[in-house]
Amino acid sequence: MKKTISLSIIFSFIALLLVLQLLPREAIAATDPKQRIFDYANLLTVEEKDNLEIVANQYSAESETDIVILTTNDTQGKDIIPYMQDFYDEQGLGYDKKHGNTAILTLDMKNREVYLAGFYLAEEYLSDGRLDQIRNKITPDLSAANYYDAFTTFIETSSKYMRISPWINPELFIFKLWFQILAPIAIAAIIVGTMAFHSSGRVTVNDRTYLNTAQVMNRKDRYIRTTVTKQRKPSDNNKGGGGGFGGGGTSGGGHSHSGSRGSF
């Protein structure tokens, strides 16, 4: 009886949490004519593009940051970063103002490179590290040419990260479902196991119960020899993984941004 009550309390609590998590999603879906998908490389169908505009519009409003997709076959001889910076300066992207909060995914189809960047609020919330995490998430889809899926993931994940305090690592293991399920089970098993083990009575004598006197008659701690081994310091080059390198920068217009770069 007691058991069923406690179980039903647990389940209703979980249900409540799930509902609470879903609630804010349903807010604001007002249409605004702003363009956020610039598919110059024609990777998307018209329908996909329209859908992404709606998704981008909704998530941009939630995170108060414009989430922009930029694809190109021709960077006009520029590197991917200056190309993106110039695009930002020219277009005056930004949710709150011209040249404002923006998260932007740039895809250079010619050199098969991807660059993620965050301006202003997004520079703080989408740090280089977080952008690396997002890029690692979408790279498999990009390599498999599932551009629509990759862009959707980018929009959703960026928006989610924008609402998480910058000092928290959103991919930390304690936020993972497998950990949230396995860790309490392991702890419960250990606790109940010790309870069962101790149910037959514990040993309550210790090392000193019967020891009357103890004396060290003779001791020696003689130094013999020294060995030294050396190892090359791990270099910082392979940080970021997957061929990614470089962080943020500042655009020609003087707008500083975070960044994560890689190939796919």
Binding site: L211, N212, T213, A214, Q215, V216, M217, N218, R219, K220, D221, R222, Y223, I224, R225, T226, T227, V228, T229, K230, Q231
Partner: peptide
């Protein structure tokens, strides 16, 4: 990594 080796000896009377 520097490792120093020591030769340890103890003679203990316990009661």
């Amino acid at each position: 990594t520097e490792t120093k080796y020591y030769d340890i000896y103890r003679d203990i009377d316990l009661n």
